[in-house]
Design a protein around this nucleic acid. Structure first.
Length: 436
RNA sequence: GGCCUCGUGGCGGAGUGGUGACGCAGCGGAUUGCAAAUCCGUGAACCCCGGUUCAAUUCCGGGCGUGGCCUCCA
């Protein structure tokens, strides 16, 4: 089985050949921790978690390093902390903790390393010094800026030239910039804001440098896969490339760049003003994490996805049916069709479709492989109801049915239904579930 | 305005130069005291206009529409 991945850099789907099969390396941009993560943020986490699982399966658990950072220094963070009247540290710690809980509830494995930006300031400063030495950056007015014109291939990831970008021309014009497209690597910090001593005075990093620093620290100059949302392609990833390659004598940052598509909600852009803005936490209150995860994987990662309640219901139904079939199995293993689908650029919809044709063992194996455990589904179905009272009612109803007292048996059934309990009479007896 | 993305049946969603996946819903049947659940069966699609070809949903060109980026809202 050969893994094939679509590379945004080349726009082609190529065979994946690791730089070092003993240590396959992947970096995915994590959250800036200033607020709850929303369902759109969940997509790359889930998608690249599946890739992480597939890489571990292929190369061995001990031979894959997956880094997903936490950005805990940012102007949005500063603003939010001031707004809430709490310290920056309190805000970032609280938000990061919630984030970890949320992504765990969605069935994601923890990455190998979860570095924090504020713990890598020294590495950022080092890269900036290297960039200045290499003629890719300049200090001006307390700032350090990356000089985009110094790198001939700037724009190669997003396939746009400097001329094209300037044509759009809505960039911030600052007097200290040589070129309007030059972007900030380091900027001065006033006393009230977080700051670190640097060769350019007390300051704080620009937006993109933290990823270059952390990727370099844990994965080396060049690694295998860099992932993130398509919205990060420009400017974030483009600038990461410029910084890392500029500091590393032009050595490529990542061999394969992968980008997941955008998410919409009920056919519309998710936004607070439209009232269709959902945090992961909101959704977890109403839906098992597995259902949210399954719903995400039913669409190929590069396609746009429309997140709908109807889709969630369908996902729940499919999962539940499968769980009923697979529950007693102990030693599951996915089949070849399943892996072939995943190996083809992470084609999760095709992999899921293969499960409909699979035998029970392969079905259970496929579900397990994709991170579906059934734990939350069971909880969602059994919590906050009186299971003893339900069992009693079922016994009473079955006794009535035996006596052909259907008026009484139907009364009991309707009574339970009114409490949100649906009965199912199967060949093995009567079971129940919570109505949705 | 520039660059890019996507457009498949009621819905979701793969895939392919020629025998039209799969799932959900629907419909028919089995089962059931009646339902629900379950099982079996089943109709239905490739945005528009050109081009290439014996043959296009699939390749090429144009158009229309969706969405994204160009503004440190993923």
């Amino acid at each position: 089985m050969t893994l094939r991945l679509f590379n945004t850099l080349t726009k082609t789907k190529d065979d994946f050949v690791p730089l070092d099969a003993k240590n396959v390396r992947m970096y995915v941009c994590g959250p800036t921790v200033y607020d709850f993560a929303h369902i759109g943020n969940a997509r790359p986490v889930i998608v690249f978690d599946v890739l992480f699982r597939l890489l571990r399966h292929t190369y061995g658990d001990a031979h894959v390093t997956y880094v997903r950072n936490i950005t805990d220094v940012d102007d949005k963070i500063n603003a939010r902390a001031a707004e809430r009247g709490i310290s920056i540290r309190e805000l970032t710690e609280e938000t990061a903790r919630i984030y970890e809980e949320d992504v765990a509830a969605l069935g994601n494995l923890p990455p190998s390393v979860t570095p924090r930006a504020t713990e890598h300031i020294a590495q950022m400063i080092k890269i900036i010094e290297q960039l200045i030495a290499a003629g890719h950056a300049y200090a001006a007015d307390g700032h350090v800026l990356f000089e985009v014109s110094s790198k001939a291939d700037y724009g190669k990831l997003s396939r746009r030239s400097l001329d094209e970008m300037l044509a759009g021309a809505r960039v911030e014009v600052a007097p200290y910039k040589k070129n309007p497209m030059d972007f900030v690597l380091w900027k001065p910090s006033e006393a009230a804001l977080p700051g670190w001593d640097s060769p350019w005075g007390r300051g704080r990093p620009g937006w993109h440098i933290e990823c270059s620093a952390m990727a370099g620290e844990y994965l080396g100059e060049t690694f295998d896969i860099h992932g993130g949302g398509i919205d990060l392609q420009f400017p974030h990833h483009e600038n990461e490339i410029a910084q890392s390659e500029g500091a590393h004598h032009g050595h490529p940052l990542a061999k394969v760049w992968m980008h997941n598509g955008f998410l919409q909600v009920e056919g519309e852009k998710m936004s607070k003003s439209l009232g269709n803005f959902f945090t992961i936490r909101d959704l977890l209150a109403d839906w098992p994490g597995e259902v949210l995860r399954f719903n995400m994987l039913r669409t190929h990662y590069r396609q746009p996805i429309d997140f709908t309640v109807a889709g969630l219901k369908e996902s729940w139904k499919m999962l539940e049916r499968w769980y009923e079939v697979t529950e007693p199995l102990v030693d599951p293993a996915p089949d070849a069709a399943f892996f072939e689908a995943l190996a083809d650029d992470l084609n999760t919809p095709a992999a899921i479709a293969s499960l409909h044709q699979a035998d029970e063992l392969a079905l259970a194996g496929g579900l397990d492989f994709l991170g579906f455990s059934n734990v939350q589904m069971k909880l969602a179905n059994k919590t906050e109801v009186d299971t003893v009272a339900i069992a009693d009612a079922i016994a009473a109803r079955n006794a009535a049915r035996k006596n052909k007292d259907f008026k009484e048996s139907d009364r009991i059934r309707d009574d339970l239904l009114a409490k949100g309990i649906v009965l199912k009479d199967g060949p093995g007896g009567t079971t129940w579930e919570v109505k949705r």
